[in-house]
Design a protein around this nucleic acid. Structure first.
Lengths: 336, 336
DNA sequence: TTATGTAATGCAAACGTTTGCACTATGATG
DNA sequence: CATCATAGTGCAAACGTTTGCATTACATAA
């Protein structure tokens, strides 16, 4: 493979000059610039990034960590979009993106330390689910910039993160339902083990308060994310004296069971009962009827987390912070 | 960051010795081995892979190419698993996996050439959808090993690939239906623009032949992959004088519409009509009823493509070839 | 003329490894 | 005892860049 030396020789200049031309340093005459570029084209030369990495002590690489076996980590359908967003930003910076699974015989710490010390990765993006105090300390100690995808609670100080604005998401959902004429709105699918779930509930409560609607005891339902639970819990709601006329689903699979329960009872969607579900872009339009959702721009989340990471890498002094990506309601057929 | 020199100094040996210890070369005495390892642990030394890459002219890196905007490229829910399979094999080899999207202002060729020449990637895995003669030539000319995910038709000689055994998949589906007592089996969802779709049809035809069932003119239905098409086409079938008693869906979303059409007519699944659909592990269990599918081991596909790539990288002489990953039927509730 | 400034380029060290070759002991063999 | 083989280690070059500093050539000013 042709190296800088061969270019230099062919152009009758020193390697320094070629290097400066390639990195368009200002102190090169127009003449040599053109001459050297001509040779570069002719010989089809591309600089060897590895040599560059060695001398500059930069790898031009960031890493995306995943825990494939942890259901609290990136969810399958999300991952692609997140990665896409990150990768896009990387390309703009001419960095490359390495993907590594942390769930192996190697411990998380060892994996990260390998990436940083052996592979010389310059930054790390990881799901908040695999982050803990120990790991934060490790990362800080190594001085490696990182950003978490998912909101990091206040216990972890000085950690940068990006998340969906879950709270505002359900707020919007409630307002939307209210504006369409629904007045008795319930929330199904609080999963206390998941932070985002708790935030979605907060949004619900806050919107209900703001609208001066009242929340009956049975309006907040705790259950995990499955169509079976959706079915069961919705059925319970339908058997109440005063059943709700709208449902906010805290999570995607739930809505499948919710819809089934409603139609099984012979009720009409969206006339009798309206439904809004969170995310699940893929599922939403596959169901009958297609589900109105709080849409989540996962690509943007990836893109922004990369942006934040590069800020950290470039100016080491960025104020650590969190960023919330706003959601929007996509009306389909489960709401008036 | 601590380098090999500091270790050498602290251990009172030369850097060569440290290097040999790290790479456990045989010609090192037990004594020095232990002594040096002790220092390595103490100083918390990890070799710098970039320097190693420079001298050995290897990057210890392979690349996975994606075309996010091409619907014929990896499908969203598949990608995660494929990547996971690839990444697993990479970790075993202590390689890292870079992911790059080819759909940017940069042309495919430039992207690949950048990865190979600048980033020194040692091998490439890419979806067959982005491969064409030109690209094959480019890759071959650069001498970079690559394997395609998806069957490469015979026009492209000497290209290694891994794919799902689509043909056997539908064969199995038909046999399975037959064994459950269904005798009039139709195939919905031939998409002639997609090779895998054509192969699924082949499997259907071959099994029907083998079982000496006859295929009526209306038993093979060409349409694209949407629940709407599934609904329309299934309705047409139901309006025939002699409607089929089982359906093989060539693709996932179709089955949603198919089920809807059947239940709308008041027919029972699986008693009146049985359904088997391809892949769609996620969707299958979300529907009512849950769909029996030809299950596709996408992780394995990723793993095997990585394995094949490393064969290519290590012994340059591997006979170019294709590998088919076998499928299995997962019985859920749309078949007897 | 000489001194001074500046634009353009080259020299050579450095980054952290690997590895062919040379060297030194040590023990075995004749 | 001399010779030889061998195990263990070190020396130094090499990989392909970048970059601080030195150098050159030339123009301008004194």
């Amino acid at each position: 493979m042709v190296s800088i030396k061969e270019v230099a020789k062919a152009a009758g200049v020193s390697t320094s000059t070629v290097s400066r031309v390639v990195n368009n340093s200002p102190s090169i005459s127009q003449n040599t610039k053109e001459k050297v570029w001509a040779i570069i084209k002719k010989l089809n030369y591309s600089p060897n990034n590895i040599a560059k990495a060695l001398i500059t002590n930069k790898s031009y690489t960031i890493s995306l960590l995943v825990d494939v076996d942890d259901e609290k980590s990136f969810q399958n359908p999300f991952f692609y979009e997140i990665m896409h967003g990150i990768e896009k930003y990387c390309q703009e910076k001419e960095f490359s993106l390495m993907v590594a699974n942390v769930n192996t015989k190697m411990k998380k710490q060892d994996m990260i330390s390998w990436l940083v010390k052996t592979k010389r990765t310059e930054g790390v993006i990881l799901p908040v689910s695999i982050l803990n105090k120990e790991l934060v300390k490790e990362l800080k100690d190594m001085g490696i910039p990182f950003v978490a995808v998912g909101e990091v609670d206040s216990i972890q100080e000085n950690v940068s993160w990006v998340d969906i604005d879950n709270k505002k998401g359900t707020e919007k959902a409630v307002y939307y339902l209210y504006n369409q004429g629904y007045k008795d709105i319930a929330f199904i699918g609080l999963d206390k083990s998941k932070d985002f779930s708790k935030r979605r509930l907060e949004g619900y409560v806050s919107a209900i308060d703001r609208l001066s609607l009242k929340i009956s005891d049975s309006a907040i339902i705790e259950c995990d994310n499955s169509k079976e639970q959706g079915y069961i819990q919705m059925n319970n709601l339908l058997n109440l004296d005063k059943r709700p006329d709208a449902i906010v689903c805290g999570n995607d699979s739930l809505s499948v069971g919710v819809i089934k329960a409603i139609t099984d009872k012979g009720l009409k969607i969206p006339e009798d009962i309206g439904i809004i579900s969170f995310d699940s872009r893929q599922i939403a339009s596959l169901l009958y009827p297609e589900v109105t959702t709080v849409d989540v721009d996962v690509f943007e989340m990836g893109f922004q987390s990369a942006k934040m990471l590069f800020d950290l890498i470039e100016n080491n002094n960025v104020t650590d912070q969190g960023l919330l990506i706003s959601t929007k309601i996509i009306k389909r057929n489960t709401t008036k």
